[in-house]
Amino acid sequence: MKCVAVTPEKTVFDSEVEFVVVPLFDGEYGVGKDHSPVVGRIGAGELRLTLNDGSVERWYVEGGFVEVVDNTVSLLTNRACLLRELNLESVRQEYETARTLPSNSPELMEIRNESIERARAKLRAAEKAENVFSR
């Protein structure tokens, strides 16, 4: 099975994988070999790729889509970086900033909620990364 991750800037990942766990916006979604065609909306969170040799690569992705067809998983995402590259302190800061956004109109409220949700997911991923890699 093939997995390709693309951001507008470049192709960040392109190789054979065994199993993929994609952070859809309402929960994680696992894709194995011969999966039926799916288009899904990516939220923010950890992308886990199990490579053919059994090792696991962890990425942080934010927004975009995943498309599964013909044993190819294509991810279109706005941001992608290795999970261990996230800085816990700055992510925490981002979360705090998101919480202080104004919310005095329905549209602003919506924007604020989206930002908070995204920041929270990012924080969760960063905290997890801290636990995984500090061991």
């Binding site: 859809l24 309402d26 899904g40 067809v69």
Partner: peptide
């Protein structure tokens, strides 16, 4: 034409 399942 591929018959996709759309999530959500």
């Amino acid at each position: 034409l591929v018959d996709y399942e759309f999530l959500p």
